[in-house]
Design a binder for these strands. Sequence first.
DNA 1: CTGTTAGCGCGTTCAC
DNA 2: GTGAACGCGCTAACAG
Lengths: 357, 357
Amino acid sequence: MQDEATSAPPPARARPNLAAVAALAGVSASTASLAFSGAGPVSATTRAKVLAAAEQLNYAGPDPRAQSLRRGRSGIVGVVMEDRLRDAFRDPVNIAMLDGISDELGTASLGLLLLTEPGQGGVDLSIAPMDAVILVGCSTQLDKAVVVFRQRGIPVVAIEAEPMPDVLAIDLDNRDATARAARHVRQLGHERVALVTLPLEPSHARGVLTAEREAASTAYTVRERIRGAREVFPGVTGVVASASLVEEGLIAGRELLSSADRPTAIIAQSDLLALGVIRAAEERGIRVPQDLSVVGFDGVRIEGADAYELTTLVQPSVAKGRAAGRAIVELLEGGTPAPSGFRSELRIGNTTAAAPR
Amino acid sequence: MQDEATSAPPPARARPNLAAVAALAGVSASTASLAFSGAGPVSATTRAKVLAAAEQLNYAGPDPRAQSLRRGRSGIVGVVMEDRLRDAFRDPVNIAMLDGISDELGTASLGLLLLTEPGQGGVDLSIAPMDAVILVGCSTQLDKAVVVFRQRGIPVVAIEAEPMPDVLAIDLDNRDATARAARHVRQLGHERVALVTLPLEPSHARGVLTAEREAASTAYTVRERIRGAREVFPGVTGVVASASLVEEGLIAGRELLSSADRPTAIIAQSDLLALGVIRAAEERGIRVPQDLSVVGFDGVRIEGADAYELTTLVQPSVAKGRAAGRAIVELLEGGTPAPSGFRSELRIGNTTAAAPR
DNA sequence: CTGTTAGCGCGTTCAC
DNA sequence: GTGAACGCGCTAACAG
């Protein structure tokens, strides 16, 4: 059977397609398709012929792009992160969540397309061939994108985002949890309390937490946590960090601790920020927790924070990610998963104590 | 022109397509296509008509999957990481690299599809609709996948991988750099030296570094670094960690430091491991660097390692990522970028000193 | 400026 | 078991 092939030089050097393989194998395209997909009944002989032809033509198998079109599925799930990746990945909490997501998606053989909010010059969100989308802590700026997704029939799951119509929410008790921590602080007798918040705007501007900034912000998680603190300390204010980093906590801490009547307790919106605050205190000889109580959020293990057992709100990051991934899978299978809410636990360490004097 | 449309109720509630929009707008499909893509000359009137029709039908714009097929491009670049994401992202070096990659890809409006090596139950590598692939520190187990990519004409760039045909290499001087560090250690008079290596096998098995394991391993970077150390300390051996984590360094350090004639210097293959080793020494009251010299690799800033300025090899992680991303973009534009090699710099800190006695 | 004509490469009905 | 035909939704050529 190879006689002709050897006599006539293999002509097509271009990318072969299924039809070419089928032709060389002497079968129809549909048969060849079945031979590859494994679905449907194909005789062993025929399959072997097809495979041989494929090998001869250097055919790699069905084209994923064409499959996507035909099947109406690309097998890709977009994960939209709020920040630049370099910022997002610096916080262990995000990594843990992503890990949970990827775990569930991987199980369903779904790929994970990493995207960032527009404005940072990434891919146009509505143009990528995705079957579903997970929004991670995204601002409401994504409204337009969400509309497009809905028009396309692309299911959307949002982790800790402002409730949006037709978007399945995976939520965290940011407000309640912060209120619980604040209550703990108040019970210790603290009255001069300050906040160190995560970024309020996409610009990641550092600075004082003003009423205007707060009102203008679209950062759901940040606002919820602020509100939680206000439930206990109504007028409480503080400073805004530009990212969830120890370094940023340090800067914020210096700011807060330099004033004459400095706070006796600081509620930080992440463990990294809290650790930075502690460093700032150390710099000034302010003892934690004797002179200053510090509360964090997340409950991540931070290398090098061994000296302290941070009082913090332990949130189930991986579980959150898993829930989102699971929900996506169910939605793609036509199911109707329920929104879910996760709870953070206050873990009291040795960075909070009775207010001085 | 709208008369008929208003008399007959809008029938199709199903997902509209370009043809439907064109029909309702009273233009041809190709014209409608141009109206959306913005390419080609379309009169303002026509465009408006098309857009109005689209809005009326709730049409979200061209289907990305169909565009992919037609254009032969999906706009997606796969990034294959060796480990589970949870492991990979725990090391700042990988995050930095990914950041460099995503920066360049974002500039070219390319999406980043996160994949892991098969075996961990992820997506079948050859089935995702990717335009190009970046392999990050991958083992040679990807041979088959690489063959498929080549057949498909999908360009492949590999960061720190065993050289493979038709794969553009972005390399790091793992061997030379380690040799330089080892020479520094020898100059300080050390003779009893041990290694703490990164995982040698996909299984991430912890344990002693044996000749068999080493020979069987496909972990390019790890082997290169071992070889570099051997150039200076020919018979040197040590232990294998199961991941690049402080915790793992701690375990490895305990192992190495428990023996009677313990090493006076330990060369770790990452800063995280090195920090763990230092912790192990602290546990036993072994002073660093007086009693034990420790060398790392990467030059990342680790929170909480303030007490020490680690002697380490500073590698340009972000630049590596950028180079890979840039190469991909050039390859997709039909260019032929040259392979590149990056150099690590030995940064001498205060964790190495003259050998004791 | 706009319409017509062809496919991109594949999967999926149906008949036989 | 297998083949023939059709269409997924869009866009690149040309023709007018």
